[in-house]
């Protein structure tokens, strides 16, 4: 059961190739993180999924429909929080929530009241007098108060304070328990780690990694710091060990997840006195992909080849 299935999606704006063969699969009922650096094409992908932009090529299916052709029917079943929430200056937050809810096909008044309370939002203010975070909350309440089976959220927590971020995470967990599907684009890795079943990382409009967090962790390295009774030798000859260095009599290195077992067996031969291991974080994975990009940056001006 897939809620979203995108393959080989290409979208150009004049000479800008915003999406360049992007793939994305979101299973029904999962919370899917959609990660990528600024300008990598997250919002563009989401707008194609909403039928606001027409793809140049590639196949896009959303809730078993064609997002361009069946836009209206599909939109009854989803709710969207845009990345940049702009509201009507003279219409109050409460009115905007009601309007967007009704245009979708109705919203639950009990849930609306409860969400206003949890997000601590004053619905009487006119949109132009809301702070950025409060504008974001208006869009969030409108989306979460709906009974949509799919939530499409483009950086929904930008501008929220940590307290509200926690409320948001709670709401997403509830949505998941209710069996809803969530596509969550984000820059906040802690948020993605806390919420997502699976993530897709994109860069330059193409998917570079996709899978469950466990699978992705598998692709990263664990950082090990070890103190041994006798000087440990021969580690550098092992495959999968990187960045080996000596610090204050301790040995530090990074090891690929599949080489972890071998490395530890090797170390026990020297009498392990102390050991700390830092599990791989999503951040590391992310930085590895972003880091490549930073390194590539100088070259990419002359050489527009994607990795």
């Amino acid at each position: 059961m897939t809620a979203i299935s995108v393959s080989g999606l290409v979208k150009t704006f004049g000479t800008t190739r915003a999406l360049d063969g992007l793939d994305l699969d979101v299973a029904t009922g999962e919370v899917h993180g959609f990660l990528g650096p600024n300008g990598s094409g997250k919002s563009t992908t989401i707008r194609v999924l909403l039928g606001l932009l027409r793809p140049d090529s590639g196949s896009v299916r959303l809730l078993d429909g064609d997002p361009w052709r069946d836009a209206v029917a599909l939109h009854r079943r989803l709710a969207y929080v845009p990345g940049d929430v702009t509201l009507w200056p003279n219409i109050s937050g409460g009115e905007s929530i009601d309007l967007l809810g009704r245009l979708r096909g109705g919203l639950d008044p009990r849930r609306r009241a409860e969400l206003l309370d949890r997000f601590d939002l004053d619905p009487r203010k006119k949109a132009r007098t809301y702070s950025k975070g409060n504008r974001q909350k208006v869009a969030l309440v409108a989306a979460l108060a709906s009974d949509a089976e799919l939530l499409v959220l483009d950086e929904p927590t930008s501008g929220l304070d940590p307290l509200m971020e926690a409320v948001f995470q709670e709401c997403i967990r509830e949505a998941r328990t209710e069996g809803r599907t969530v596509l969550l684009s984000s820059h906040i890795l802690a948020e993605a780690e806390a919420l997502c079943d699976r993530v897709s990382i994109i860069r330059h409009g193409a998917t570079v990694q996709s899978g469950s967090l466990d699978e992705l962790r598998h692709l990263t390295r664990t950082a090990i710091t070890v103190e041994t009774a006798r000087p440990a030798t021969g580690l550098d000859a092992l495959a999968g060990v990187h960045d080996l260095r000596q610090e204050n009599g301790r040995l530090r290195f990074d090891v690929d997840t599949d080489a972890l077992d071998g490395a530890l067996r090797h170390l026990t031969g020297f009498g392990v006195v102390g050991l700390t291991s830092t599990p791989p974080t999503l951040e590391e994975l992310f930085l590895r992909h972003y880091g490549d990009e930073l390194a590539e940056d100088g070259a990419s001006a002359r050489e527009p080849v994607r990795s």
Partner: peptide, 19 residues
Amino acid sequence: QPRPGRPAATRSLRSPLGL
């Protein structure tokens, strides 16, 4: 200073035409 608005939408604000 802008005055506060309604906490909820009236019946007229329910369609694209209403908006």
